[in-house]
Write a protein that binds this DNA or RNA. Structure first.
Length: 938
RNA sequence: GGGCGGUUAGCUCAGCUGGUUAGAGCGCCUGCCUUACAAGCAGGAUGUCGGGGGUUCGAAUCCCUCACUGCCCA
């Protein structure tokens, strides 16, 4: 034997080998079609993991699903392109390197300077940045490594700059001082989406502000007393009669005297925003440190004094609070307010705190200069509208008009909800790691020059004293461009061969957590920019073909076995690599696939993975069984062949035994089921269908049945020869069917199988072969029906034998009462019954069988001839239960059949079916009753 | 506060364009090392489909309502 398989399945010995083989052989690289047309393209973009990331279960689920689909399409003959890459992850990477610098004790980021620091980040990326893609290779992901990208690649960076310049020219990018979410730890603005709101226990402070004219006071309520240093007004609701009389009066702002100077005075104003129900109904207004206050300030044209620095420390020269951290300042201010009698009360209050998703720091709303993308504004040229739709309009239309379809469908609702309420996108980040904004400020006239290349002079006044903007772009800005930039989109709107062949991509598989971050932004940016790139035939591209993908499949969350969200703090994070080491990649992939039902979170249960490793082992041993028989066949001068098994599977010789007709027919049905399920993203159904076929039908039934046929001691005969070929042929097809789910195991066994039959593998990899289709195999309904009957007979006899206490190894005769057809079937397959149910002989009975040793089904009565008495109480209990069940069934059927409206309104096949079933149940009931009566008294 | 889900066997989940006796895997019980596989084989037990109401000849499936629970947005 050229390729002898070890006794037990050991994933570690095969997976690494094939993972390396697939990559070394560049099996999944797809060349650019010379004519720019791909045959049935199936193109997917990997959601780029962070370059700092480590593989987690979410990645593993995502990649398993993408890979199952990629492999399935590839085997169906489609041009399956899966583009991998990593994201430069501005904040995460900068943090990581800063932390490293700190631990080294050398100069920090600011001491190093921008250039040295970014060099350092690049060095870090070169050294550690491939960790996650290396892990990915272990999963067997059939990606096109030749197209791997990194979002900071030169090619992609140029495209990012180009899009920025265009958006600027279209008037869709603007710069302004607005309140943004400021992360004081990493010291940059972050977008609304990067902020999580957490409920925490806090306090509501009631503080007395005195009227400047000494006529009394008003008490405000605030959760953030330290911001009072930046107060410019107090507002109350205009309808709040408690305060109407005082509107317009000035208030003395407590603690506002700086350096012994006078206290600041601020007005009491009316504004709808103040909620009479909340606190005291009076709120202080700090425009530079709260988004709502900022809006109030704008309405009333109030000043916007800023009182904090970039690190969240009080910045008020001369103030006793200057330099204090915001939370230290709060303590001191509360103490001082209490000391001077302005603190009226402190109440417990649950507040919602904005927390930075990246660093965990509490967000400090901060007034600062930022760059924004105007998503609701129509693009213009030289100030005049071009007539084109706004970015958001296009993005909404793309989904509304069906150019992009979501699965599960409900996510389109979420998408619309967000898109319809979308705000301008803050795209600038105060980081050094990222795509630096291609804008230059004039040091003289202040005008901004935006340009792809470094400009020599200010576009306004022409002087050369200009400096480049220090901000970089939000990481999601560049990743939002990926669906077209990875295919070579450039500044000329030229249709590159890759764009022509592969854009739009067919499918995006991703998690709902980045629906807005990434999915929506790809739709916005793709729909916006690709409208300007012509179609392959030169015609104008419409929205339907400008979209970045045609379908979005949103998968759920992988939770732990108790349905808890995995989190580092809870310590319940499952490391996929650890599980893989324990059970093999194939088993983990199958676990995820078998639970991946759209819209349902996956509770990852290791017990299940263990079960799927057992499944892999089962198949492994089936392969060994085949090898053994092929070898034994060779010794008896039989030659197993896979040479013409395709035509063989379709046109079975007339001597083909029943079980072989049956298994091919089942293979046809299952192939269709798997195809249908995968087309609907029902990974769970597809996996279950393959599992059920392979284990229950192929291994448990078919292999047991063919043992009778594969008798190499007997004189050489056609049935043995044919069966040997059939077993090999069915197994080979079943391996192909399973291959997208368990690529390693099937690759190994597929090659081993060809080696066993002394044939070269017809392809380098099973992944490059044809996916089994229903039409590839002979369907035979009659054989399926016959097999079902025989299976029922075998199972019934086995059960009966157990009840009668027939020793396992002892054969016993049976007596059968059934239709002529079934009787003949049983007699013709007596050898099958002998092997599967230890039936010594089959005798026919003309009368129904109701004795202690008999059982009835809808199709037959069968009795096992065995002298030993059955367990009477157990049998009585069983029969009593059956009688109850049948009685209930008969009653409910009769009730329906007795109803005239049912007979009149229900479809004929339902009525007939029910009648037939009622008759059968009635018969079974009578038989069970007779059997019960026949039991000896207790 | 607004929006979207979920509740089916001990556990994790299918089934829900209404239709004949509601399924799977794991777990559980009993007996077997039957030479492919003990990561196995054979047999077995287990559900008033969250509660209530309605529509219908017929409801796990459609509608209303309540309870519990999860997620997203403010």
């Amino acid at each position: 034997m050229s390729h002898e398989l070890p006794k037990a399945y050991d994933p570690s010995s095969i997976e690494e080998k094939w993972a390396k083989f697939w990559i070394d052989e560049r099996l999944f690289d797809v060349a650019t079609p010379a004519d720019g047309r791909a045959h049935n393209p199936f193109v997917q973009l990997l959601p780029p993991p962070n370059v700092t990331g480590r593989l987690h279960m979410g990645h593993m689920l995502n990649q398993t699903e993408m890979d199952v689909l990629a492999r399935w399409h590839r085997m169906k003959g489609d041009t399956s392109v899966w583009v991998p890459g990593t994201d430069h992850a501005g904040i995460a990477t900068q943090m990581m390197v800063e932390r490293q610098l700190k631990s080294e004790g050398g100069p920090g980021r600011k001491e190093m300077g921008r250039e040295a620091f970014t060099e350092r980040v690049w060095a870090w990326k070169q050294q550690y940045g491939s960790a996650i893609t290396d892990q990915m290779k272990r999963l067997g992901a059939s990606v096109d490594w030749s197209r791997e990208y990194f979002t900071m690649d030169e090619k992609l960076s140029v495209a990012v700059k180009e899009t920025f310049v265009r958006l600027w020219e279209q008037g869709l990018i603007y710069r302004g001082a607005y309140i943004v979410n400021w992360d004081p730890q990493i010291q940059t603005a972050v977008s609304d989406l990067e902020v999580e709101n957490e409920e925490r226990a806090g306090h509501l402070y009631h503080v007395r502000y005195d009227f400047a004219d000494g006529s009394g006071s008003i008490t405000i309520a605030t959760t953030r007393p330290e911001t009072m240093l930046g107060d410019v007004a107090v507002v109350v609701n205009p309808s709040d009669e408690r305060y109407t009389a005082f509107l317009g009066k000035m208030l003395v702002l407590p603690l506002s005297a700086v350096n012994g100077g006078a206290n600041r005075e601020i007005p009491l104003l009316a504004d709808e925003w103040a909620n009479p129900e909340f606190g005291t109904g009076a709120v202080k207004v700090t425009p530079a440190h709260d988004p709502n206050d900022f809006a109030i300030g704008q309405r009333h044209k109030l000043p916007q004094p800023s009182i904090m620095d970039e690190q969240g420390r009080i910045a008020l020269a001369g103030s006793p609070y200057d330099g204090l951290d915001r939370f230290e300042a709060r303590k001191k201010i509360v103490a001082d307010l209490e000391a001077n009698g302005h603190l009226v009360a402190i109440k417990d209050h649950t507040l919602t705190l904005p927390v930075s998703q990246r660093t965990g720091a509490i967000i400090e709303p901060r007034l600062s200069m930022q760059w924004f993308l105007a998503v609701n504004k129509k693009p213009g040229k030289d100030g005049a509208p071009t007539g084109a739709a706004s970015i958001a309009e296009n993005a909404i239309a793309a989904v509304r008009d069906g150019h992009i379809r979501f699965t599960p469908e409900m996510y389109s609702k979420t998408y619309f909800e967000w898109m319809n309420n979308i705000h301008d996108w803050c795209i600038s980040r105060q980081l050094w790691w990222g795509h630096r904004i291609p804008a230059w400020h004039c040091n003289a006239c202040g005008k901004i020059t935006v340009s792809l290349d470094t400009p020599g002079a200010c576009s306004g006044c022409g002087i050369t004293d200009i400096h480049q903007e220090t901000d970089v772009l939000d990481t999601w800005f560049s990743s939002g461009l990926l669906p077209f930039t990875v295919f070579g989109w450039n500044s000329t709107n030229e249709l590159t061969p890759d764009l022509s062949a592969f854009y739009p991509t067919q499918l995006l598989v991703t998690g709902f957590d980045i629906l807005f971050f990434w999915v929506a932004r790809m739709i916005m940016l793709g729909s916006h920019f690709m409208l300007d790139v012509p179609m392959p035939d030169g015609s104008k591209r419409m929205l339907a073909d400008a979209v970045p993908f045609r379908e979005v499949y949103i998968h759920a969350l992988v939770r732990d076995a108790d349905r808890q969200k995995m989190s580092k703090t809870k310590g319940n994070v499952i490391d996929p690599i650890e599980i893989i080491t324990k059970y093999g990649t194939d088993a983990v992939r199958f676990t995820l696939a078998s639970q991946a039902s759209p819209g349902t979170d996956i509770a990852f249960n290791e017990g299940r993975t263990e079960g799927y490793r057992a499944f892999a082992n089962k198949i492994w041993n089936a392969a060994r069984f085949l090898q053994m028989n092929i070898e034994r066949g060779k010794e008896a001068a039989y030659t197993a062949s896979l040479g013409s098994h395709d035509s063989f599977s379709l046109e079975l010789p007339s001597t083909t035994p029943l079980e072989t007709r049956w298994i091919f027919s089942r293979l046809a049905t299952v192939s269709a089921e798997v195809d249908r399920s995968l087309a609907a993203y029902r990974f769970d159904e597809a996996a279950q269908a393959v599992y059920q076929f392979f284990w229950d039908e192929f291994c448990a039934w078919y292999l047991e049945l063919v043992k009778v046929r594969l008798d190499f001691e007997a004189p050489k005969n056609d049935v043995t020869a044919l069966t040997l070929n059939a077993v090999v042929s069915v197994f080979e097809a079943a391996l192909r069917l399973l291959s997208p789910f368990m690529p390693f195991l099937t690759e190994e066994l597929w090659h081993a199988l060809y080696a066993s039959v002394d044939m070269p593998s017809p392809a380098k990899s099973i992944a490059l072969t044809r996916y089994p289709q229903a039409a590839d195999f002979a369907a035979d309904a009659a054989s399926v029906e016959a097999m079902n009957t025989l299976q029922e007979l075998i199972v019934t006899v086995r059960g009966l034998r157990k009840d009668l206490g027939v020793p396992e190894k002892e054969a016993a005769p049976i007596l059968l009462h059934a239709s002529d057809k079934i009787s003949a079937l049983a007699q013709a397959n007596a050898d099958m019954l002998a092997k599967q149910a230890r039936v010594a002989s089959v005798a026919l009975a003309s009368a129904p069988l109701t004795g202690n040793n008999a059982r009835s089904t809808a199709s037959f009565d069968v009795a096992v001839i065995y002298e030993r008495q059955i367990d009477v109480p157990a049998e009585r209990e069983r029969l009593t239960k059956e009688i109850a069940k049948f009685t209930k069934g008969v009653e409910s059927a009769q009730k329906q059949l007795g109803s005239e409206s049912f007979l009149a309104k229900a479809p004929v096949h339902i009525v007939d079916g029910l009648k037939k079933q009622a008759a059968e149940t009635q018969l079974l009931l009578e038989k069970a009753q007779a059997a019960l009566e026949a039991l000896p008294p207790a």
